[in-house]
């Protein structure tokens, strides 16, 4: 399907925090009550619309288990956005955020937009991490923050779409080099075919006018 841009995301965070469930909820609008351990990577894709433009999100769901970190590290590269997820009912998943952040910053490109997500907000009675703590962590590290529930779907759409909006804004500001696929952004076919000779300039191409950086 034609799209103006393609953004690559990764979902990272401790095992069991609900990464695969978030992806499933976003792509299939389903909830999976069983923890089916992710080992390799799982892919998902969905089309969204921002500013009247079709944007394809290509999402890479990674393994949270420490033992599979060798694989997870391989997927950091070339992502434009990351959802860093913890489980509000398990304090240790929040405590590990710093390690995840270091790992992400070390292996990914520096412009990557990171969205911090406190998942399982439906389990209020078992909450171990206050919402304010998540907000404070996000502020301190320059992340966007949101609490979600992959079970009730609360805020799931918003989490993925707001990340895309941030990336989109960065593109408008010229922060991302959109011609280098290694940054996790690809210009869609309707754009690149417009630029003769494949020069792949940042012009608005076949899309509605006014989208030029």
């Amino acid at each position: 399907m034609a799209y103006a841009y393609l953004f690559k995301y990764i979902i990272i965070g401790d095992t069991g925090v609900g990464k695969s469930c978030l992806l499933l909820q976003f792509t299939d609008k389903r909830f999976q009550p069983v923890h089916d351990l992710t080992i390799g990577v799982e892919f998902g894709a969905r089309m969204i619309t921002i500013d009247g433009k079709q944007i394809k999100l290509q999402i890479w769901d990674t393994a949270g288990q420490e033992a599979f970190r060798s694989i997870t590290r391989s997927y950091y590269r070339g992502a434009a956005g990351a959802l860093l997820v913890y489980d509000i009912t398990r304090r240790e998943t929040f405590n590990h955020l710093t390690t995840w952040l270091e790992d992400a910053r070390q292996h990914s490109n520096s412009n990557m937009v990171i969205m911090l997500i406190g998942n399982k907000s439906d389990l209020e009675s078992r909450r171990e991490v206050k919402k304010e703590e998540g907000e404070a962590f996000a502020r301190e590290h320059g992340l966007v923050f949101m609490e979600t529930s992959a079970k009730t779907a609360a805020n799931v759409e918003e989490a993925f779409i707001n990340t895309a909006k941030e990336i989109y804004e960065k593109i408008q500001e010229g922060v991302f080099d959109i011609n280098n696929e290694a940054n996790g952004i690809k210009i869609g076919p309707q754009h690149s075919t417009a630029g003769a000779g494949g020069a792949g300039g940042a012009g608005a191409g076949g899309a509605p006018p006014g989208g030029c950086c």
Partner: peptide, 13 residues
């Protein structure tokens, strides 16, 4: 030159 060629850089399908 400018290929983003990580072994895991493209979804298999």
């Amino acid at each position: 030159e400018a290929l983003p060629a990580g072994w895991a850089s493209a979804p298999p399908d």
